[in-house]
Computed example of a mutant assay.
Amino acid sequence: MNTLLQWDRWLQKSVNLDMISPINDKLMSLWSAEWPWFLIVLGFAIPIIRSRQWPRLWAIGWIGLTVGVSDMVSHYILKPWFGRIRPCRMEGLVRIVEGCSGYYSFPSNHAANAAVFATLWFLLFSRFQGSLAVLCAFVIGMSRVYLGVHYPTDILGGFIWGTFLALISYLIWQRLPLSRELAKA
């Protein structure tokens, strides 16, 4: 356990302190915001909407529902249960780039939600776009550490939780009549 905590602190310092630059401050703040994800989702969804592929739109709704479940369970159940205090709430531990929202940090909602989206998009639609979403999820996770609001293990825990939930969601989706419609499309 000591080794994991040492690794966590070392990686926290490497990302949060050793990468300091005004450009990184802006880029990481941008990647950490929620609105770029809406643009990414919209970019992935526009071709589906234009071609009126209704089963695929239902699948996008399913992804959104799963992201919502991930977000609520992480925020209302997992974070209070684990009770890990955010690094930005620990005086002098990290450099805080733009404030410190919330009190608990494990698991990262940003990481969990990004993992749900990327995993389900990969499984339901396009392996290429899903791989791009995985890359975006990684950058989002790194941005949360850079901004000082999460430990690296919060991100790892979020990725694990989000991927697990996405796989459960995918198994449920496959049993729904809508999934057969998507397979025909």
Rank of each mutant, 00 (worst) to 15 (best):
T3A: 11
D8Q: 05
I77R: 02
W62S: 05
F128S: 04
G61P: 07
M142C: 14
L78G: 05
I77P: 00
S29A: 04
V149W: 03
G61H: 00
P107G: 09
W31F: 12
S143R: 02
F106H: 07
S14V: 01
A166V: 11
R89M: 10
N16W: 00
Q129S: 13
F82W: 02
S14K: 13
W35F: 11
G102V: 08
R95V: 04
R127A: 13
V97C: 02
R127I: 14
I23M: 14
R84P: 06
S179V: 05
W58D: 00
A59Y: 08
V67C: 03
V149M: 03
S70N: 15
D18M: 00
D18S: 10
G162Q: 03
E98C: 07
F106I: 01
L39R: 09
I155W: 08
I96M: 02
R50T: 02
E91P: 08
D8N: 15
F44I: 06
A112P: 02
G148D: 02
F44S: 14
S32G: 13
V69E: 08
Y151S: 12
K184Q: 15
G64E: 09
L42E: 11
N24F: 14
T66V: 14
Y76G: 00
I63N: 05
R9L: 15
Q129G: 12
P177N: 03
F159A: 11
I49M: 04
T66S: 14
S32F: 00
G64W: 06
N24W: 12
A133P: 07
S126Q: 06
G148K: 08
W81I: 02
H150G: 05
P55Q: 07
V139L: 09
N109R: 09
I23C: 00
K184R: 15
W81F: 14
A118H: 02
S108I: 01
I168N: 10
G68M: 03
W10R: 15
L4K: 04
H110K: 03
G148W: 03
M28H: 03
P36L: 09
D25K: 04
I23F: 15
W62Q: 06
A166S: 09
V69K: 01
K13Q: 12
S143Y: 01
A166P: 10
A111F: 08
K13L: 00
P107N: 08
N24I: 07
T163D: 08
G68N: 06
R84A: 04
L165W: 10
W58I: 11
F125W: 09
W7P: 00
A115G: 02
W121D: 06
I20N: 00
L176I: 01
S101F: 00
R127L: 12
V15L: 15
F128V: 10
S179M: 09
A133L: 06
I49L: 10
D8A: 00
R180D: 12
R89Q: 04
Y146K: 01
W35P: 05
A114D: 07
P87K: 12
F122H: 12
V94G: 12
S126R: 10
